[in-house]
Design a protein around this nucleic acid. Structure first.
Lengths: 233, 233
DNA sequence: GAGTGGTCTAGACCACATT
DNA sequence: ATGTGGTCTAGACCACTCC
């Protein structure tokens, strides 16, 4: 009896989205159940489920068994940004990429990082300091502590061709991580590298990664003056 | 013939993930097809599809019709962070929230923002300047241009109880947006508000939102000294 | 207890990219 | 042309949670 048109879960999602955006269903209101919607759209309940699951992942509706599906009151919008490989980030700007390893030594974790990077005091941590260049100009300065117990081969790698950043991405899978961004002044340590004033504001990103519960690496990346982190959503 | 255990797509995803992480399947390698895996796990192909789709969304495998499913060479890790409502962000820190509207006037868009926020020259833009407080101390300073043509009711709202931020979240649905983060000095304009030196580095976030192609609002948020943006992934 | 979403199945057809 | 993933169906059972 239904029209022979191709039904797609995306089409259904868009229609549901329209009703939400146009306030056909008010924020906080419970919308019809999957079965009812399936009948309205003349499709299987599975298909409606697919559409609603998608909207739920986007945070536009909240779903609970028995309670039903409600339109979110203030949709918590999420921005997803891809953590780039530095080489790809530089090349995407049309610049030529290179890097240079400045330091590589066994070094204990500073107490200031102890909370963020929970390794035992006896852990073997390799500290590396790397400058990444775009067109032979310093682009980013990286200070990294890597847990050799978690990824032994890292200690053997020569970082002339492949950077610590890229080596870890390819060889040390991780399951979770944390990311922190803030602003800091260049200070005496970096004003020389970037040929700027001590009080030049710089964008800093710190990252910790774990494989299950095992800490892999902690890295602080201080970008050159004027750097902007961009993402769509 | 199959064991009577509850089969779940999550279980299958974890097993596939294990094989990827432990290099049972090498990066770049094509893994068995859905049908073959379904037979191995003794489940329907749909269930394997669900697991693989999830891994593909996470960027760990790439899938193409006919070509099959391959393990990603360098998994592009994605960090998802939730764009918070300022009030919720402040209250989540255990502080008491308040805000204060400093300015509210019709104002043309500065030419510097013309590229990021494409509205016509004749558009009615309302400029608002708001300070957000945590425990009566300035927490964030917001400069916002809002396209009244897109959301007329914004011009009528009194922002004493509800802030521009929250008003828009609840009343102006949007489909896409852009986000930019960078570091800037406080300068003369903000050193007074935050009671800091002119050269104090501050964390700045700029956001543009659109409904379809219609620009809604452009906002620059300059956070107080020491602010850190955090997210897990 | 009962109603809702979450998941699974077996089968089918289709879209697409590779060959 | 062919093989692979993408989607859809109709039905079923289960898990959770509200009442």
């Amino acid at each position: 009896m239904t029209v022979k048109e191709s039904n797609s879960w995306i089409r259904i999602r868009e229609e549901l989205l329209r009703r939400i955006n146009e306030r056909v269903w008010q924020p906080g209101e419970t919308i019809p159940g999957e079965a009812e919607l399936a009948e309205e759209f003349g499709c299987a309940r599975t298909t409606v489920n697919r559409a609603l699951r998608d909207l739920a992942e986007a945070g536009l509706v909240t779903r609970r068994r028995k309670a039903g599906t409600r339109v979110a009151v203030n949709p918590p919008h999420k921005a997803t940004f891809t953590i780039p490989i530095i080489r790809e980030e530089v090349e995407a700007r049309g610049s030529s990429y290179s890097h240079s390893l400045l330091k590589r030594e066994k070094r204990p974790l500073p107490t200031s990082l102890h909370a963020a990077f929970p390794v035992g005091d006896e852990a073997f941590l390799l500290y590396t300091e790397t400058v990444y260049f775009a067109d032979d100009r310093p682009f980013m300065f990286e200070e990294r502590y890597t847990n050799i117990d978690a990824t032994p081969a890292f200690a053997e790698a020569a970082f002339d061709l492949i950077s610590p950043n890229e080596w870890l991405v390819q060889n040390a899978p991780f399951t979770t991580g944390d990311l922190t961004c803030y602003a800091a002044n260049a200070g005496p340590a970096l004003s020389g590298l970037y040929e700027c004033q001590d009080n030049t504001p710089l964008f800093v990103m710190e990252r910790v990664t774990f494989n299950q519960t095992q800490p892999i690496t902690h890295v602080r990346m201080t970008y050159s003056p004027g750097y902007r982190l961009r993402t769509g959503f």
